[in-house]
Simulated scan of single mutants.
Amino acid sequence: MGKSSKDKRDLYYRRAKEEGWRARSAFKLLQLNDQFQLFNGVKRVVDLCAAPGSWSQVLSRELKAPENPEDVKIVSVDLQPMTPIDGVTTIQADITHPKTLQKILEIFGGEPADFVCSDGAPDVTGLHDLDEYIQAQLILSALQLTTCILKEGGTFVAKIFRGRDIDLLYSQLSYLFEKVICAKPRSSRGTSLEAFVVCLGYKPRPGWNPQLELTKSTEEFFKMPILYLDLPDPEERLIAKFVACGDLNDVDSDATYTLDANFKKMALDPVQMPTAPPYKKALEMKRRGELVRR
Rank of each mutant, 00 (worst) to 15 (best):
G2D: 07
S4H: 14
R9L: 13
D10C: 01
L11A: 07
A16I: 02
R22Y: 06
S25L: 05
F27N: 01
L32P: 02
D34E: 15
L38I: 11
L38M: 11
L38E: 06
F39H: 08
V42A: 11
Q57A: 04
V58T: 08
V58Q: 05
R61E: 14
E62V: 12
P66E: 10
E67G: 04
S76A: 15
S76N: 06
Q80W: 04
M82G: 06
P84R: 04
P84H: 06
G87N: 03
T89P: 04
T90I: 15
T90L: 12
I91L: 15
I91M: 12
K99I: 12
K99R: 15
T100G: 00
E106Q: 14
E106I: 08
G110W: 08
D114E: 06
F115W: 03
F115Q: 06
C117E: 05
D119H: 06
G120Q: 03
V124K: 06
L130D: 15
E132F: 00
I134G: 00
Q135K: 03
L138E: 02
L140C: 14
L143F: 14
Q144K: 14
K151C: 09
E152R: 12
G153P: 11
G153R: 09
G154Y: 01
F156G: 01
A158I: 01
K159A: 07
I160R: 00
D165G: 04
I166K: 00
L168V: 15
S174N: 13
Y175K: 08
Y175I: 10
E178I: 02
K184C: 07
P185K: 07
R189F: 01
L193K: 14
V198N: 05
Y202N: 01
G207C: 10
P210N: 11
P210L: 10
S217C: 13
T218V: 15
E219C: 11
E220K: 13
F221E: 04
Y228D: 08
D230H: 10
P234K: 02
E235F: 07
E236V: 09
A244E: 14
D247S: 12
D254E: 08
D254N: 13
D254F: 03
Y257P: 03
L259Q: 00
L259K: 00
K265I: 00
M266T: 00
P270Q: 01
V271K: 00
Q272A: 14
T275D: 09
T275C: 06
A276D: 13
R294T: 11
